[in-house]
Design a protein around this nucleic acid. Structure first.
Lengths: 209, 209
DNA sequence: TGTAAAATGTTGCAAATGCAACATTTGTTA
DNA sequence: TAACAAATGTTGCATTTGCAACATTTTACA
């Protein structure tokens, strides 16, 4: 994952942050950080801790949209922040830096050293986000739980370069990622084992084809 | 939709394109443009015509991933171009301009007038793409066809600002967008009408709640 | 404008899946 | 480390859905 200030030295980071009118806030665990965000477009960086975007259905169903860990980025440009159904909860003590979107392209900053690197990092981060969403969509468009699992496994194999890998999340979270019922997913996993398509040991999975 | 060269005059567009080592190709209808794309990262702009990304399953099922019309943008940074399962077919005579990703942040171009505007347009395009994908994911994570339809309708209402709207695609394409069986979707639409939740007239739909 | 292609509407049926309701194991933290 | 919370595994059952196979209407274009 690319960090917004990757390959920029501390001095230039400070300079860029000043031009970008960056502000840093620290939140305790379990609060909704979206409740007091202002209306201007912004990009936010999770300096420390982690957060979780959640949405609540009209019939009260909660679903986890996305988890963002330390170093991760989110923003009003890429997410409907002002949606009553969406909340963003800190999972632990979390420090977040906000930068104003409009200041990204002001004249002052464009003359700053490392500005091009900063822009390139930002473009990389946004591109990576599109790619991640494409992967998720590729999974979600599969019709059956089996095909969703196999697509997820295929992506893991392609990322790790090995047919044996340990899934980086719990099965409960995986079911959420695939948007299927957890117990139905467990059932399908045993069918896959019965059919000799996968082998499992806890969260370690081996594709056998 | 933002155009990559929005708010930049013709002269500066030519200058930027030169620095970006832009090349333009025209394709006849019905060809796969991904078959002869080179390996470097690029961003492509559809100057004229339209294209359609398609993927083919291991069991031969075709699905339409995305349609890009005139003015639209795509690129290797945000899409797995070198995937044997994915093809990109021209739907009509289509002209495409390719720009090299690495040249976006070279030193020459950063001194060009309108460079900041170009960068801002690019960031806007990428952000919009993330937003679109978020919307699609929001739909696809719904468990039932009914909830997928209602989420799609909600997005349309929110975009158009009216509870009556005409869907911009065919019902066949809509079923694809929701990743549900077309006939099952038609069935669910009549249930929604029976239940007094929507009213339809061809592709014109009115939400009644 | 005639004809082929695409879109739309309908229905029976088998298969997949969500849901509920558990038991059991693992992990967390006061 | 005891107690509680979270994760995992299992199964019956009702519901939803994909799929196939049509008929009919609309659209595209030669």
């Amino acid at each position: 994952m690319t960090n917004l200030f990757e390959n920029i030295n501390e001095q230039n980071i400070r300079k860029i942050k000043r031009f970008l009118r960056a502000t840093t806030t620290t939140y305790p665990k379990g609060v909704n950080i979206l409740s007091n965000v202002n209306q201007d477009d912004f990009i936010a960086i999770v300096d420390l801790g982690s957060i979780q975007f959640e949405s609540t259905d009209y019939n009260g169903n909660k679903s986890i949209i996305e988890t963002i860990n330390q170093g991760g980025t989110f923003g009003s440009l890429t997410f409907p922040i002002n949606n009553e159904e969406v909340s963003c909860i800190t999972k632990e003590i979390t420090q977040i830096t906000y930068i104003e979107y409009d200041s990204i392209t002001n004249d002052e900053i464009s003359k700053t050293d490392s500005y091009i690197i900063f822009i390139k990092n930002l473009i990389k981060i946004l591109s990576d986000q599109v790619n991640e969403k494409n992967n998720r969509i590729e999974i979600l468009t599969k019709k059956t739980t089996r095909d969703k699992l196999l697509e997820y496994f295929k992506q893991q194999v392609s990322e790790r370069g090995s047919k044996t890998f340990t899934i980086p999340i719990s099965f409960t979270e995986l079911a959420n990622h695939l948007s299927v019922d957890r117990s139905a997913m467990t059932r399908e996993l045993s069918y896959l084992k019965d059919d000799g398509i996968i082998k499992t040991n806890g969260r370690k999975i081996t594709l056998l084809y």
